[in-house]
Computed example of a mutant assay.
Amino acid sequence: MSLRYAVLTLLDIDPGSGYDLKRRFERSVSHFWSASHQQMYRELHKLHDEGLLDCEEQPQAGKPDKKVYSLTDKGRAELRNWVAQPAAPQKIREPFLVRMFAGHHLSRDELHGALDAQLQLHRGLLDNYREQNERVLKSDPALQERYWLAHQTLLLGIEAEKTWITWAEKLLVELEEKREETN
């Protein structure tokens, strides 16, 4: 998948500025897709140049005009065609796992510290996703129905983080057991 379709999908929900889109991105698809602010703006401009987005400038007091993007019919058709295509599963690209693969170069303490730091990051992500889930569950029932499928991706993100945490906690216990065996 490319950022192109994440942007089209988010603008299909509601028109918005680059800033609006980045915030929406962080509160929705960030549990399975990432992009920098610069990448987001580059993609908005590219999609606009291709005729997939309209851009309306809205004046703001004391600030530059706000550019609000929305899908064109051509953009909606592009999104629909993309959604209809089968998607191949993606392989995990996780830098931490490469480090773990080469973890035999670390002392037990260094390995423990690296794993514990990763565990804390995943606990933080899980807390964030659970907060997002609570907001969804407290939202208007009509919105919940409209975005039911989108919500399912968040629920998968929660399960993925729980799996990471279970794996890391188990590995920390095993590291501690190995440390006791050698003492």
Rank of each mutant, 00 (worst) to 15 (best):
Ser2Leu: 13
Leu3Ala: 11
Tyr5Glu: 03
Ala6Asn: 14
Val7Pro: 03
Val7Phe: 05
Leu10Pro: 04
Leu11Trp: 01
Asp12Gly: 10
Asp14Gly: 05
Asp14Thr: 07
Gly16Ala: 13
Tyr19His: 13
Tyr19Met: 04
Asp20Gly: 02
Arg23Glu: 02
Arg24Phe: 05
Arg24Tyr: 07
Glu26Val: 09
Ser28Gln: 09
Val29Ile: 09
Ser30Thr: 01
Ser30Asn: 03
His31Ser: 08
Trp33Ala: 06
Trp33Ile: 03
Ser34Glu: 08
Ala35Pro: 12
Met40Asp: 06
Tyr41Val: 09
Tyr41Asn: 13
Arg42Trp: 05
Arg42Asn: 12
Glu43Val: 08
Glu43Asp: 08
Leu44Arg: 01
His45Glu: 15
Leu52Glu: 07
Leu52Met: 11
Leu52Pro: 01
Asp54Gly: 06
Cys55Ala: 10
Glu56Asp: 10
Gln58His: 12
Pro59Lys: 13
Gln60Asn: 09
Ala61His: 15
Ala61Tyr: 15
Gly62Ile: 12
Lys66Leu: 14
Lys66Tyr: 09
Lys67Trp: 04
Val68His: 08
Ser70Arg: 13
Leu71Cys: 10
Asp73Ser: 02
Lys74Ile: 05
Arg76Asn: 02
Glu78Val: 03
Leu79Trp: 05
Leu79Lys: 04
Asn81Leu: 12
Asn81Ser: 14
Trp82Lys: 10
Trp82Ile: 00
Val83Phe: 07
Ala84Thr: 02
Ala84Met: 09
Ala84Asp: 06
Ala84Tyr: 06
Ala88Phe: 11
Ala88Gly: 07
Gln90Asp: 15
Gln90Ser: 15
Gln90Glu: 15
Lys91Leu: 14
Arg93Gly: 05
Glu94Thr: 11
Pro95Gly: 15
Val98Ser: 12
Met100Ile: 05
Met100Pro: 01
Met100Gln: 08
Met100Asn: 01
His105Phe: 04
His105Lys: 08
Leu106Asn: 12
Ser107Ile: 07
Arg108Leu: 03
Asp109Ile: 02
Glu110Ser: 13
Leu111Ser: 10
Leu111Met: 13
Gly113Cys: 05
Asp116Trp: 04
Ala117Trp: 06
Leu119Glu: 06
Leu119Asn: 05
Leu121Tyr: 11
His122Ala: 01
Arg123Pro: 00
Arg123Asp: 00
Arg123Thr: 01
Gly124Phe: 02
Gly124Trp: 04
Leu126Asp: 01
Leu126Lys: 10
Asp127Val: 06
Asn128Thr: 07
Tyr129Asn: 02
Tyr129His: 12
Arg135Val: 06
Leu137Tyr: 05
Lys138Ala: 13
Lys138Val: 00
Lys138Asp: 12
Ser139Val: 01
Asp140Phe: 11
Leu143Glu: 04
Glu145Ala: 15
Trp148Phe: 09
Trp148His: 09
Leu149Asp: 11
Ala150Gly: 13
Gln152Val: 09
Thr153Met: 04
Thr153Tyr: 09
Thr153Val: 01
Leu155Phe: 07
Leu156Lys: 13
Ile158Trp: 04
Glu159Asn: 08
Ala160Pro: 04
Glu161Ile: 00
Glu161Asn: 10
Glu161Val: 00
Lys162Glu: 14
Lys162Leu: 11
Thr163Leu: 15
Thr163Trp: 12
Trp167Ile: 05
Ala168Cys: 08
Glu169Arg: 06
Lys170Asn: 15
Lys170Cys: 11
Lys170Ser: 15
Leu171Ser: 11
Leu172Val: 09
Leu172Gln: 11
Leu175Arg: 06
Glu176Asp: 08
Lys178Cys: 02
Glu180Gly: 00
